Simulated assay, not measured.
Amino acid sequence: MRALPVRRIATTVLCASLLIGTAGPVIAAESDSPPSNAQEAARAPVAGADALLAQAKTLGDAGGVLTPVTDLLTAVLKADKGQLPAAEAAKLAEPVKAAITKASAAAPKAPEAPALPQTSTLPEAAALPKAMPDDARAAADPKADALKALQTAVDTLLKAATGGDVAAVAGAVPTVLTGLVNVVAATLLGGGLPAPDLAGLPALPKLPEAKLPAAPNVPQAPALS
């Protein structure tokens, strides 16, 4: 009589084993099955993700410039009389140049204005001005100009910080700080970023628009009699 419970236990274990053996391939098949439409929808990117990623990258590029430049400024301002050993100055200058070069490559290029039609077939046609004057072309790419000016300011600071001229260091540091502010401003104004909405914050100025000069009036050809 004592064998009966043992048989029942063995029978239960056997049934459970058969059930697990039968369900195992089904579970494996379900895990290997392609994702359903609901799963694909859950993995879909955020609406407008490409534009938002571009904005995030724009800020990241600006931040990548700020960090090495501020590291250089901190080292110079903490050094005795603002002087750095040549090796330390070169070590600090390398990431600055790399960051500015990277940000310059990522800066959007200003579109060139289309060439104006030629009027040389008319008699005594007046010469037309350039499609876009140099000053207007420069204003169309403020971020690139700001990055270039910042690199020049950094070079001036490095020269002063390794040349023993304390007065030159004092004059170069504010120029570098202004260059950093210009890079940030150009990034915010020209990077397609959302407008700030902080209460009490003054409105940012708009970038100057490059406009083509008006073409001079061309005299009409005399009518043939």
Rank of each mutant, 00 (worst) to 15 (best):
A3W: 08
P5L: 06
P5I: 03
V6G: 10
V6Y: 02
R7I: 12
R7A: 12
R8D: 08
R8A: 14
V13I: 15
C15R: 09
A16F: 15
S17A: 15
I20L: 13
I20M: 11
G21W: 10
G21H: 11
T22Q: 04
A23W: 14
V26W: 14
I27P: 11
A28I: 03
A29D: 15
E30I: 06
P35Y: 00
N37H: 10
E40F: 14
E40L: 14
A41W: 06
A41K: 10
P45Q: 04
P45D: 05
A51T: 06
L52K: 07
A54D: 10
K57A: 13
L59H: 05
A62N: 07
G64H: 05
V65Y: 02
L66R: 11
T67L: 08
A75T: 14
L77D: 12
A79Q: 04
D80R: 13
P85N: 06
P85Q: 08
E88S: 07
A89I: 01
A90M: 05
A93C: 02
A93D: 13
V96Q: 01
I100H: 04
K102R: 12
A105E: 10
P108E: 08
P117E: 10
Q118Y: 00
T119D: 05
T119P: 01
T121P: 01
T121D: 13
A126V: 13
A127G: 03
L128C: 02
K130C: 00
M132N: 03
D134L: 04
P142V: 06
K143T: 14
L147P: 06
A149T: 00
Q151L: 09
V154F: 04
T156C: 01
T156D: 15
L158W: 05
L158M: 08
K159Q: 08
A160I: 13
G164Q: 08
A167F: 04
V169A: 07
A172R: 06
V173E: 07
V176M: 05
V181L: 05
A186F: 04
T187Q: 09
T187P: 02
L189W: 01
G190S: 12
G190Y: 01
G191P: 02
G192N: 11
L193W: 11
A195W: 00
P196C: 05
G200F: 02
L201G: 06
P202D: 04
K206M: 09
L207Y: 02
P208D: 03
A210Y: 04
L212H: 04
L212G: 10
L212T: 14
P213E: 10
P213D: 10
A214E: 12
A221D: 06
A221G: 03
A223N: 05
